[in-house]
Amino acid sequence: MAPRWWIMLGVLLLLALPLSLLAGQVWIDPFGPPVPGAVPILVELRAPRAALALVIGGGLGAAGAAMQGFLRNPLADPGLFGIAPLAALGAVLSFYTGAAIQEWALPGFALVGAGLAMALLVLIAGRATDGGIGRGITLFTLAGMMIASLAGALTSLVISLSPNPFALSEIVTWLMGALENRSWHDVALAAPPTLIGMVLLMRAGPSLDALSLGDAAARSLGVEPARLQALMVLGVGLVVGAGVAVAGIVGFVGLIVPHLVRPLTDHRPGSLIGPSAIAGALLVLIADSACRLLPLTGGELRLGIALSVLGAPFFLMLLLRLRRDLA
């Protein structure tokens, strides 16, 4: 990506960050009269929330760019591996069993779910790299879809069996994805795995570039299928698992962001990962601030819903453009 675009994304982020800290039900005007309770609102509520938006958005943006490169498909997103649904099932189980009363249980259960999904993926499709990267990718996608649909069904089962209306409402609300009332604890929990995951995905960059030329050419350029697969599963798993553990299901970021950023880059998947991380962070930060500002009776608009409402028309636009290109 050309330096001017990096600068532009950086400037936008630097503008959006303070604005998101000031905006909300209580507006904090730095030049106006002092707002009572401004310091705790900023430090305890808005700063961790903004930090979490940056972490989750950045991770999902990077994971989306890497997934599209790995599957060589612009319609891919990090959800395709089935990691998010299984992580969500873990979280839902923590509500069901009542374990969620403990602060560690919800993210812990979600991370176990994400780890289980990664292990299943590797068990089902891991050794398929003998036949080349292409066959491995097909098996991976199918295994991911299987895991996702199974996890989705089990989540519905848990909801239908939920012991009391409290648990039910907790589960349903949580599944919508949000950054409301998150603390520095959540940031400390999500940031390290997300950062490690992003580093792994960046390391997969050159192999993903080579994969643009197809399976055989990539291997002839020295790409090792097993290593690439391991980087992708671990990288996407850590990012998505950490995200679900603290924020629930946040969809569409991984799909939309790489599309928005791709025209600014030289179209190599590897060159897209970094910019997508920044743009993803920006998108979630702005979307979350917008959720806080929208006048809605009975609470805030949920971030997951807002992004999906934003994402669906975008997806439609993509499909229409694809149809035009095919015509």
Partner: peptide, 24 residues
Amino acid sequence: FLPQGGDVAWNLSVATLVRLGRLP
């Protein structure tokens, strides 16, 4: 190695495509 067919997944520029040969 130049495989048969040679599809390119993304709309890379010619220079970017050629530079992929430097990856190893």
